[in-house]
Amino acid sequence: MTHLDAGREEVIATYNFAYLDEQTKRMIRRAILKGIAVPGYQVPFASREMPMPYGWGTGGVQVTAAIIGPDDRLKVIDQGADDTTNAISIRKFFERTTGVETTTVTAQASIIQTRHRIPETPLAPGQVLVFQVPIPEPLRFLEPRETETRTMHALEEYGVMHVKLYEDIARHGHIATTYAYPVKVEGRYVTDPSPTPKFDNPKMHRNPALQLFGAGREMRIYAIPPWTEVVSLDFEDHPFEVQAFERPCALCGAADVFLDEVITDDRGGRMFVCSDTDHCNTRQDQGHVGEQQG
């Protein structure tokens, strides 16, 4: 251990389990419980300074810190991958401040903190999915006034969400929104699913896992409890559809998953592979083969 590392260990040792003090955790848990009681409703909370800047998942980190216990096993993904800088730094943060086990295997995690994806492996009862949310307010696009959006939620005045979809169709011939595609939760609150691809929207519907959303800068927490109805907004003559991919994953051959384009060399070579790296690796370990591996 270098001198610098020793110093850091000491600083961290002076913090409480999972960094936040117990009073702050209780405050966040109350917000989470309220969010679970009113699915899709944005609950204000007193977001704390975290040892990372806003935009690096401070909302999700605070939610995870408030719910994590010594027996939990944590997985952290960013765009579906466990090994991006952001995912690694959040995972290390919790390793240092809680000592809990971490994993990259979706099925083995009790808490999964995520940015931009829902894992391909179906979640199970008892698991918690924690989303990092930059902008929690789906009405913000057309109504910048906070007092007005609050009233619109209270009175279920959601016509403006369809104005957004109307504009999409008028301009592109189809609903071109592919990320942060608005949903209605339990027939009541219109909610932003965070910048996940709309491909993942159907996974939110009646998911057996608890889905929690934390927006640090905007100081909002919301929740989708297990088995909750989550419906993507659409028009009768332009129904909601998920992205379709022309080919399966080049590495594992999976056909029903969300793919990322990857540049393979400096001569313009490219391929499409699973954005969920754990899912792809697991399939390859099981012997599934894509055309690149053939």
């Binding site: 403006v160 104005v163 109307y166 008028a170 301009r171 003559d237």
Partner: peptide, 27 residues
Amino acid sequence: LRMNVSAGANVGERLMAVGQRHYGRIR
């Protein structure tokens, strides 16, 4: 008016606000 959406959306908004969900008919 909503200055950041099209004329069609400006006229259609009230229809959507009262629950119309058929793009073709709104347009």
